[in-house]
Simulated assay, not measured.
Amino acid sequence: MLVCRQWRDIARDDYFWKCLCAKKWPSVCKRPPASSMSYHKFFQTFSRLSFKDLEFYIDIWSERRLIFSEAVPGSVLRAGIKSPPSGISDSMKTYLEGPNYKMMMPVEPQFTVPRENPVSVSVLVGRSDSKKVASIVGQALFDYVDWSTFRALAYEFLSLSPNYPFVSGAWVSLLFMAGAGDDTVQVFGVEIDFYDAASSKNDVPWLLDMLDWK
């Protein structure tokens, strides 16, 4: 996506990270520490937010009926799905085993979603260090289904703090079992993905740190 490419290009510029460091630690940019690390690495290393500080609030509706609602510790999403259930497609197995970092969780018990009715998702994230909450997606529709990997995807732009003059977005995916019925499909997992904006375990906390926390 254009947004992801824009973020990727910005993230490669160390001057951008110098500006972020200047907002958090102004003195660092006046007289840089005797270190070989880039400002990007410096920001990642010393930004305080981590997965253990985070809790995600995930609610999924089919039309107006709530079909899934969980408060999920950041450590659970960070760990991903270690033991996929039997009965998933080969393409899903390949996707789960791929090299890219995936922030996802198993759904227990599994639930079904209708093929025809609109399904939407809301994801909030709370942080224990400041007791604040931010939105990742709000009532975003799963309006794209990728049957090649058995996923339904919802997208929304992130609400970033005005201090950060760029745009980025988040995808939320429902992960389907194989052998879907004519009317419903069975969900075994949920994934949150920021693509190029945060493509590693270290990237996600500092991206979330830039949200418009309330």
Rank of each mutant, 00 (worst) to 15 (best):
V107N: 07
Y101D: 00
M104Y: 02
Q110S: 15
L96G: 04
V107I: 13
M105T: 15
Q110N: 13
V119Y: 11
S120R: 15
K102W: 00
V123P: 06
E116G: 04
E108T: 15
M92I: 04
Y95T: 01
T94W: 02
T94S: 07
K102Y: 02
P106G: 08
P109Q: 12
P106R: 11
V119R: 10
M92Y: 01
P99M: 00
P109M: 08
P114C: 03
M105Y: 04
N117P: 05
F111V: 15
P99E: 01
P106A: 10
L124G: 08
F111D: 10
P118H: 08
V119S: 10
T112R: 15
K102F: 01
N117Q: 14
V121T: 11
V123T: 09
K93I: 04
Y95M: 03
V123H: 09
P99W: 01
P114F: 05
L124H: 13
M104F: 02
Y101S: 00
V119Q: 09
Y95Q: 01
E97S: 12
S122E: 09
Q110F: 13
V113S: 11
M104E: 04
M103I: 03
S122R: 14
K93G: 01
R115A: 04
S122F: 08
N117W: 07
R115D: 06
Q110E: 15
V123C: 13
S120Q: 09
E116P: 00
M103L: 03
F111E: 11
P99L: 01
N100F: 03
M104L: 07
P106S: 13
M103W: 03
P109N: 12
T94G: 03
V113P: 04
M105C: 12
E97A: 10
E97F: 05
Y95E: 04
M103V: 07
M105I: 14
P109W: 07
P109Y: 11
